[in-house]
Design a protein around this nucleic acid. Structure first.
Length: 427
RNA sequence: GGAGGGGUUCCCGAGCGGCCAAAGGGAGCAGACUGUAAAUCUGCCGGCGAAGCCUACGGAGGUUCGAAUCCUCCCCCCUCCA
């Protein structure tokens, strides 16, 4: 069984250039493969998790992944899948982002001894000479064919800028370049990258007379058709500083029923035989499967300690039932209740003096970040969605202070059913 | 370069002198129901501790008691012509 079968079985594959040849190639020898990552922010988010996991699977089976940070292509902006031209970032912004993303990817992939490579296409793209590029590369592209690509066709409606039109050539050049210099023969990417991948394959064949391959991943939405990785707190980032491991855990545990099996296959390394059991689970047991998904996913992106502490906090807050020992035997998730530990929940320190004085509830909710404005906090309280230590806050200007401290010296603030912040007294 | 159409709150999209913090939908938040799910129903959905004020309809000016709405210039996008 080759990685190809693993990827296929786990739901990673949408389109393939040549299934038989790819399966054979991956089974026969170590392959160098690549995926591009856009440095458009200082952190990747859940949307990049499918590509990342696929690279991890490749590495686990002895292949060599290249994570290509698109520092050069980001200067252009990929129009694929976008209905509008996006903001073009400055060189500095891109360099900062590229650096941050490199660090982040190192949590998933082993870059020691060149077992995986991190490259930035700015290194070669910015060296290109326009006239030479047109003569050597541009002549291999048919405008007619490019216009028939799905990614460009949809933009014919709203308008396509020339700078974006060149994106396909640059990504194609990347593939050619990686093939020539690193022996890379396999490109993977989201399904919106299909046109770019195929163009790169054509270009490499014309220039090098080498056959290279590609696959695309399905573009993931939830069973409801919502984009993944968006919550009331905004994007779910992979960086613990932007999205805490606890919030990350919560994102996964809130997965819709219909997505649990699919997500376990994509976002954990648990064996498929254990995952397939999910389709027989209902009610409480299905929620256990969500715990396992959240635990395993958090463990991969953060670490086991963070996953455990998020699990404990979540279990304490939601009276989570421990996962049955017969389910998911490969998972290291705890099988029995552990003492309540809420340390993973966002905690804000307050001095005794501040608490003695007390703070109006609507100001406090805004201050600790549960609400984005005092007005929002007032509305929340008016609608009965604000709680202190489990009881509803009646008036927007009720004073929260020293009197509400519990035995642990804490006040638990809650918004709705799921969002908590703990106020802790510091002497 | 010429002619026409357009840029509205997170997104789509109506409004085209006061009744506009701006219809409708989506997204989001809360409540009810539940299983920290989905679906459904209800309420909310720019900021400021009331009234009221401030900020917002591409940008800058102007007309008017009053401008998202009218005028001038500028920027950007689309369509057709060149």
């Amino acid at each position: 069984m080759s990685v190809y079968d693993t990827l296929a079985e786990r739901g990673f594959i949408e389109q393939v250039t040549d299934e038989a040849l790819i399966r054979d190639m991956l089974a026969r020898h170590a392959v160098t493969c690549y995926i591009g990552f856009d440095p458009t922010a200082t952190s990747l988010h859940i949307g990049s998790l499918v590509p990342i996991m696929s690279l991890v699977h490749m590495q686990r089976e002895g292949h060599r992944p290249i994570a290509l940070v698109g520092g050069g292509t980001a200067l252009i902006g990929d129009p694929s899948g976008k209905s509008e031209m996006r903001r073009i970032l400055t060189r500095d912004e891109i360099d900062t982002n590229a650096g941050a993303i490199k660090q982040q990817l190192a949590r998933y992939l082993d870059f020691n001894d060149e077992k995986a490579l991190l490259l930035n296409n700015a290194d070669w793209l910015t060296e290109l000479n326009y006239i030479e590029f047109l003569r050597d590369i541009g002549r291999h592209f048919s405008v007619n064919r490019m216009l028939s690509a799905e990614s460009y066709r949809m933009r014919m409606e709203t308008g396509l800028n020339f700078i974006e039109f060149n994106y396909m050539l640059l990504q194609s050049y990347d593939f050619y370049y990686l093939n020539k210099h690193y022996g890379c023969t396999f490109q993977m990417g989201g399904n919106d990258q299909w046109g770019n991948i195929v163009a790169g394959i054509d270009l490499t064949r014309r220039l090098e007379e080498t056959r290279v391959y590609g696959i695309t991943f399905p573009l993931l939405t939830t069973a409801q058709g919502h984009k993944m990785g968006k919550t009331e707190k905004g994007t779910v980032w992979l960086d613990a500083a932007l999205t805490s491991p606890y919030d990350y855990f919560q994102y996964w545990i809130n997965t819709e029923d219909a997505d649990v099996e699919r997500f376990l296959a994509l976002f954990t390394f648990l064996p498929m035989e254990e995952i397939r059991v999910v389709r027989t689970l209902v009610d409480a047991e299905l929620n256990m499967a969500k715990s396992v998904l959240a635990f395993e996913a958090t463990k991969i992106t953060h670490d086991e300690e963070a996953a455990l502490s998020a699990w404990k906090a979540s279990a304490a807050a939601f009276n989570l039932r421990p996962v049955d020992s017969k389910l998911f035997p490969s998972s290291a998730i705890p099988r029995r209740a552990l003492t309540g530990d809420r340390s993973a929940i966002t905690t804000i320190n307050k001095s005794r003096k501040e608490l003695e004085k007390g703070i109006a509830a609507f100001e406090l909710f805004e201050e600790v970040g549960l609400c984005s404005s005092r007005g929002e906090a007032r509305r929340l309280i008016a609608q009965g969605g604000a709680y202190a230590n489990g009881s509803t806050i009646g008036r927007f200007d009720d004073i929260i202070g020293i009197g509400q401290l519990d035995d642990y010296g804490e006040i638990r603030l809650r918004k709705g059913k799921k969002s908590y912040v703990i106020i802790k007294i510091v002497e």
